[in-house]
Simulated scan of single mutants.
Amino acid sequence: MLKQFSIILGIYFLGEFLQEVFELPVPGNILGMLILFFGLYSGVIKFEMIDRISDFLLENLAFFFLPAGVSLITCFAVLEGKLTAVVGFSVISTVVILGVTGLTVELVKKFLQKRPENVSFSGKGENKVGKVPDNSQACEIKTKEVS
């Protein structure tokens, strides 16, 4: 798991380094996420190389929000009198995020429906070619094996 953490941390530092060297307006952690995404998408980084640390980080995600929550509590004096603006901004941003997420899901669904029937995505960065059985065929196969 230390090797997997080193990969994630190295990609993060690479993003920070690129941001600092090229003085980009994008934060280094965002660049690191883009590097990780394209690394996984292209197959340079295999999912198996980071799966355990990714699961660990996702399971403990709430822990990473504690510093932000504590700093927000310590800044109540600054936020005094601006509660309406903070709540309004939170509601509006939540609605926007829900809308963008919904539109993204719809676009991905349409994209996947337009794909040829004989190509299925395995979920691990590679495509498998062959006839994809529909659910009725899968049920028939299972019932024949049980009989």
Rank of each mutant, 00 (worst) to 15 (best):
E48Y: 05
G125R: 00
K142V: 11
T101E: 14
F64E: 02
G81V: 05
K46Y: 06
D134P: 00
Y41G: 03
G130F: 08
P27A: 11
Y12N: 09
V100E: 07
V146F: 08
F111W: 14
L112T: 09
L107M: 02
F121S: 13
A138W: 15
V87Y: 14
G43L: 07
Y12Q: 02
V86Y: 05
F121W: 15
F13N: 04
K114T: 04
I7D: 01
F64H: 03
L40C: 04
L34C: 12
I73W: 13
F22E: 11
I35H: 03
V86N: 01
L18G: 10
S120G: 15
L98A: 13
K110Y: 12
G130L: 07
V26I: 14
E117I: 07
I141T: 11
P67S: 05
E48Q: 12
L79K: 03
N135R: 04
Q4F: 00
M1N: 06
P67V: 11
S122A: 12
G69A: 11
L103M: 09
L107D: 11
M1H: 14
E106I: 14
N127M: 13
F22T: 13
I30M: 04
T143P: 01
K46G: 06
K82M: 06
D51E: 13
I35S: 02
K128P: 00
V44W: 11
F37Q: 07
E23V: 15
R52D: 08
Y12E: 04
S136I: 06
P27K: 03
F37E: 10
V91H: 05
L61N: 08
S136E: 06
Q113K: 12
